[in-house]
Amino acid sequence: MKILVPVKRVIDYNVKVRVKSDQTGVDLANVKMSMNPFDEIAIEEAIRLKEAGVAEEIIAVSIGPEKAQDQIRQALAMGADRGLLIKTDETVEPLAVAKLLKKVVEEESPELVILGKQAIDDDSNQTGQMLAALLDWPQGTFASKVEKKDGKLEVTREIDGGLQTIAINLPAVVTTDLRLNEPRYASLPNIMKAKKKPLDVKEIGDYGVDIAPRLEVVKVTEPPVREAGVKVESVAELVEKLKNEAGVI
């Protein structure tokens, strides 16, 4: 089968974000950008399905600025076969992303779409579920194990309280949780090879999808700051403080 893997260019997970003083957002100037970690897991899973003979072709797609080609090239270096960038400098909300991805699915006819359960910038956790809804496909979210069995997909999901296993019909949308796999590093030869793999660039306008935001960002502010605490010297002092100062035990 063919697998489509949407990947998002986000601020690197190790970067401590700074809120802009004019409260319009966070400062992205000169900040390291990377592939959303959950999407890396999605690419890895697609590659493993290909290596297991379940999948034949992997297409990595990103919706974002010109520079998002870096993230697609990373996916290609890891083992995806070709890439597609839908170019825009606008912020595209999950609902509009899902509508764009639906168009890509209609063009490419993959049997499976695997993507991260959430992006670590807006923490929305919506796109996969929305895409499944728009396509009227089943969804296997927060996956920690994916197996093709008897023409269906068995997905083990991380849920409150433990793990749930479901069987879903194909075609389907799967979103990845942290423990699905450990993504590989791209080797230098593979990085070189990835430069020759096909990467289509299209304009967002080509798709005829209304991407006007539904949510107006009124402001972005710093979270409340916790006041600095104290260091205690001993367990006895800790117990005394918890009993008499904090009153929590």
Partner: peptide, 13 residues
């Protein structure tokens, strides 16, 4: 947003 390192106020249309 950003793992709680920023708080976003949004108005839904």
């Amino acid at each position: 947003i950003y793992a709680g390192n920023a708080m976003q106020t949004v108005k839904s249309k």
